[in-house]
Design a protein around this nucleic acid. Structure first.
Length: 485
RNA sequence: GUCCCCAUCGUCCAGAGGCCCAGGACGUGGCCCUUUCAAGGCCAAAACACGGGUUCGAAUCCCGUUGGGGACGCCA
């Protein structure tokens, strides 16, 4: 039974790196019919609340990554806030002391810091000198009597700590490079190493899938598992996501919160698809995947070992592909809030005019990379009479001859039957020919008159969807239109 | 400084000894389609970091160098 977890600290938002880690965990769980656990690592936090993790939860929900156990849904291993498991962590730390695997340390943090700084000054690396590991019983008694605060340090045994990493293969660390690390602070707060291991044991996690930056933490954790007499889970360390400058992705590289991408008009399925292929491959050249297809194809072995640079252009491409593939009905649902915000929504779009708007979306959706662009393309269809872009007018409406020809065209279109693509085109071309004007000139002028813009989808399709009445009205208004000087 | 990870086109990947004078995708350039802009189709430029081995044969295995990244906290 596969049990994986995503364990973010509540920073307020889900960044793309975390999102991909969550995605890989989720994919692995779903692929194997396992359990995906959401656990909040807030050991340091004053208090934990649903509010603090709202940003992360929003991101996960938007991406469609649902969890089987977690803070809100509960589960057999609750609570899922690490801060609510502190007593358990303390108990475990004391147990290690009793078992002789850990010891009390009375050294102060200031002292440590000073020694560390000294060593650094000499260009050396400082590791804890085990002062407290060697204290005599008398010394300890005196320290205790004086009420000196004590931390608990793990006693790192000599030897080597190997573990198998599902993406990197076998990795081994010489314990000599590990110091006796603190597992319980002098204020009785557990440290990260203790908390993760304790919780992962308690929650029966079978596979730890997390960022590459944890690989050097892993031997310490493996040592803890061994001290607890528990077989460590399998590890899979996924490479980091880098910015274009090859540095770890951060705010200065632009949007790093997944919800920011939502705001920018990206589809969650595009984000998921893009993130999945960033550092993972199905082993062939396939690139476009739905969420379900990813689940079916996903393997931890397919994760590559090297870091990956975040490529926004490729994200755009995925988004464009997924927009084009989405049914127009689904697309309309995604657009509703945006249309409302833009003041373009009317209820008949969901009722009497739904067939019409779906046809419009069919026409427009292959042309855009983002939802905002789609909204923009939609505007001429949803407002009464769109404003005319001055530069477009200057380009195609500057000739008085062409402007008056638009009126002629309006009259012709008033009676053409049926009001269809082929008949409209024939009418327009005939009108242009009779006037001795190039058809292209009239086409462009018509586009500007009707949509207000120099570019649009295929003009004749646009005219059909706009409808005769609207087209005639918009053409006629040009008679009274005065182009800017 | 110490330890660890990584190394194929600008970017993301394929390649698990001969199928590779290296394949796909994004991006870039060109052409086609065309009423515009996209989309789509076709074509092009573009990489196995370097040096040693192993082997009949290496992008693929081993070692070293270089380069990049990460970790070295009583942060997570």
């Amino acid at each position: 039974m596969v049990r994986v977890r995503f364990a973010p600290s509540p920073t307020g938002y889900l960044h793309v790196g975390g999102a991909r880690t969550a995605l890989f965990n989720w994919l692995y769980a779903r692929r194997h019919g396992g359990t995906f656990v959401l656990r909040i690592e807030d050991t340091d936090a004053e208090r934990s609340s649903w509010d603090m993790v709202a940003g992360i939860v929003d991101g996960l929900r938007w991406l469609g990554l649902d969890w089987d156990e977690g803070p809100d849904v509960g589960g057999p291993h609750a609570p899922y806030f690490q801060s609510q498991r502190l007593d358990r962590h303390r108990e475990l730390a004391e147990r290690l002391v009793r078992d002789g695997r850990a010891y009390y340390c009375y050294c102060t943090a200031d002292e440590m810091q000073r020694k560390r700084a000294d060593a650094e000054g000499r260009g050396e690396t400082w590791t804890y000198d085990r002062t407290c590991e060697r204290r005599s019983a008398d010394e300890i008694a005196a320290l205790e009597a004086s009420g000196t605060p004590r931390a608990i340090r793990f006693r790192v045994p000599p030897g080597e700590t190997p573990f198998t990493d599902l993406v990197h293969g076998p990795i081994a660390f010489d314990n000599a490079n590990l110091e006796d690390f603190v597992i319980l602070r002098s204020d009785r707060q557990p440290t990260y190493h203790l908390s993760v291991v304790a919780d992962d044991i308690d929650m029966a996690i079978t596979h730890v899938v997390r960022g590459d930056d944890h690989i050097s933490n892993t031997p310490k954790q493996v040592l803890l598992y061994q001290a607890f007499g528990v077989t460590p889970p399998a590890f899979a360390h996924v490479p980091l996501i880098l910015g274009p400058d090859k540095k770890r992705l951060s705010k200065r590289h632009g949007a790093t919160s997944v919800m920011e991408y939502h705001r920018l008009g990206y589809l969650p399925e595009a984000m998921v698809n893009f993130l999945a292929l960033l550092g993972w491959s199905p082993g062939n050249d396939r690139e476009l995947f739905s969420r379900d297809e990813l689940v079916a194809a996903f393997t931890l072995e397919g994760i590559s070992g090297g870091n990956a640079v975040f490529n926004p252009e490729k994200l755009d491409w995925f988004n464009q592909q997924h927009i084009a593939r989405l049914s127009s009905a689904a697309l309309l649902a995604r657009l509703e809030t945006r249309l409302e915000d833009a003041g373009l929504w009317t209820d008949d779009l969901a009722t009497t005019r739904v067939g019409w708007i779906l046809s419009v979306l069919d026409l427009l959706k292959p042309r855009v990379k983002k939802l905002d662009q789609l909204l923009d393309e939609l505007r001429p269809f949803l407002v009464d009479d769109p404003e005319i872009d001055p530069s477009a007018a200057q380009k195609y409406l500057s000739s008085g001859e062409v402007r008056s020809l638009l009126d002629t065209l309006a009259s012709a279109l008033e009676t053409v039957e049926p009001f269809g693509e082929a008949t409209i085109e024939a009418t327009l071309r005939a009108t242009a020919e009779r006037a001795g004007v190039k058809a292209a000139a009239l086409i462009h002028a018509t586009r500007v008159a009707v949509t207000g813009r120099a570019v649009s989808a295929g003009l004749f399709q646009v005219l059909v969807l706009l409808g005769r009445e609207c087209v005639v009205r918009r053409l006629r208004r040009i008679l009274n239109y005065t182009p800017a000087a």
